[in-house]
Structure formats: structure tokens, C-alpha cells
Design a protein around this nucleic acid. Sequence first.
DNA 1: AATTTCACG
DNA 2: ACGTACGTGAAATTA
Length: 376
Amino acid sequence: MSKELEREAAEIEEQVYALAGETFNLASPKQLGEILFGKLALDPKAKKTKSGQYATGEEVLSKLAGEHEIVRLILSHRQLVKLKSTYVDALPELIAQDTGRIHTTYNQFVTATGRLSSTNPNLQNIPIRTERGREIRKAFVPRDADHVILAADYSQIELRIMASFAEDTSMIEAFKEGQDIHAATAAKIFQVPLEEVESDMRRKAKTANFGIIYGISAFGLAERLSIPRGEAKAIIETYFQQFPTVKAYMDRVIEEAREQEFVSTLLGRKRYLRDINSRNFTMRGFAERNAINTPIQGSAADMIKIAMIKVHRWMEAEGLRSKMILQVHDELVFDAHKEEVELLKQEIPRLMEEAMELKVPLVVEVGTGENWLEAH
DNA sequence: AATTTCACG
DNA sequence: ACGTACGTGAAATTA
């Protein structure tokens, strides 16, 4: 794959230089910015970063993709180089001599919310979103032919936690009925029957749901959806009108944070928010979004940790040969002995679903395969 | 060492 | 008018 990516990247690089009319270091955002916004003048209103050079990140380039062929080429070059340098070339170097396997280190004391983080290598950001990326994920395979990869992941865990915290009856009802939560949200905010929800409405509702968890702003939603700010504002207003207890919950969390200068997760982890009463709008806004997001993200982290302990204790008690090998925030991955697969597929979802009791049902999806990609 | 970009949930 | 979605880590360039 390294050779293949190298060759493709080099080909694209040549095309970029031809279109630019000169060679430069394509890996240098600074030089690239000068070409795109200086020489080619692709955007008279090009934004600069805080260090004064032109911003050339993915969001900037995607908006320009229609303007000039060179932009599309740069984006695909970036993708290939990223996959090659961060994964394809780096991971084989990290195979331990004694085990012949890659071993990550999980950090328990890094994140502000209580999640784990993973380093050297980071195995919590293995590609999956693009076709080229998925090829990399296929390289993660079981120890031998007697094993398979088993992956179990919580479905919509953060939205369920929010619905439970907010005690929102209609959202809880949607989860109880096993509905497609983004479609159900779309029906509410666009005020149409569930059967009449179109894909574009669902897409907008999905983005709105994520936005809610992150502490939404009309500006942010408008950016993500490429719609006018007024339309985004209307979506948010209708959202809170349709889910009034969600709005009340958000207000309550921020109010509590102001009084205590911290927020807490379900199991009592605290995050101090010293800027929550700041007179500086930007700093206070940041703290308010943290106040909304941290209890949700952090409680999901609490939950999967409980699940990991329960699953590990159960596996130990049963004397199983299978091993829990990875945690990726809402997912557990196992190197599963084929003779134990049926038992694991029954018990792991149950143990994960019973890690905590919320006001919504918890759902865990489980799959197996010859590699990590197939197990999803 | 800081900055920029981009991979994931 | 401001300045804007949450949490991470790694690689390459720049200072």
C-alpha cells in the first residue's frame, strides 16, 4: 500500500505543479496558500490563520473545489499522504518484537471529560470513513485462523444519555420504539409525519442532534449545513420548541455550572469551568459549551469503563481464551476464539447494555469478521 | 516548540 | 461588533 500511495501521490503532485505553473513544497500550507490565494487568486476574501498565513484546511479547500481543478487534486493528495505517513508507513514500525503485534498505550489521565486516549500508536483514530482508509482498517486481523475480530458498539450513546438527562419524553419514546432517531428528530423539527421525512431533512436533523450535544450555535450549524444563518437559527428554535425539556436541561446545566464552577458526570467526575462566569463572551461561550458537552461525553466514558470491567470479570470467570483488545470511546474490540463467538455475541452486548441504567434503553450492536472492518 | 492539518468518536 | 459546535494524537512544516 505504501508503494501504491507513493506512486499515486507523486502523480497528483506533478499535476498540481503543472496547474500551478511552478513546483513548490505541496506539504507546506504556507507555500500552498501563496499559490492558491496569491498567484491563482482563487478567493479574494481568503481567510488567514492567526500566524498570518492563508488557511488551507479541508473546510477551506472544499468550498473552493468548484473554482479550480487544482483544489480537488490537492485534497486527494492530502488524503493519500496522510494515510501513508500516519498509518501505512508508521504502524509496521511499531510491531513489538516479542509479540509480533502492535500494542497501544491507553492514557487514563489525559482528557478533560474522562475518556481514554491512545498513544504510540493512537489506535482510536484508525481510518474508516473513506474507501482508501477502510483498506487500512482491514489490516487489523485476529491472532490466528482460530480467531475472529468481534466488535461491539453502543448505538447513539450520547444522544441517549442526553435524552435521559433531559427526561425528554418524546425522544425517550423514539428510543423505546427503536426508531431512527435522526428521522424522528427531522419529523419533529420540520413538522411532517415520520413517513414523509426526506433524506435532506434527516441529514439536517442529524447535524442538529450533534450540534445540540456540542452546545450549538446558529453560526456553527449554518457552517456545517452550508445554509444561511437565519435558516439555522430557525432550525434551532424549532428544535427547542419541539424538545422543550432539552432546552430546560441545557439551561439548568449552565446555571449549575455558574453556581459551582464545575460540572459532573453520572459517576461524579468533575470538570472545573473557571471561565463560566467570565465577562469575555468568547471564553464564557467556550465554557458554556463545555458545560453542556462534558456531562454527556463524560458519562458515556464512565459507562463504557463500567462495561469493560464487567466484561473482563465475566470473561475471566468463564476462563475464556478470547481477549478484549481495544476500546474506541463507544466500541469494544475483541480477539475472539471461534468456539466462543456465539457466547460472546450473546453476553457482551448484555453486559454493556447493563453497565448503567438510564431512562432510555441502551442498544449495543455486535459483529464479527476476518478483520476489524468486516466486524462492523 | 508552535502551528497547521487531518485521522477518529 | 464580537466570534463561534465537543473530545483526542500524529505528522510535517515553520519559527
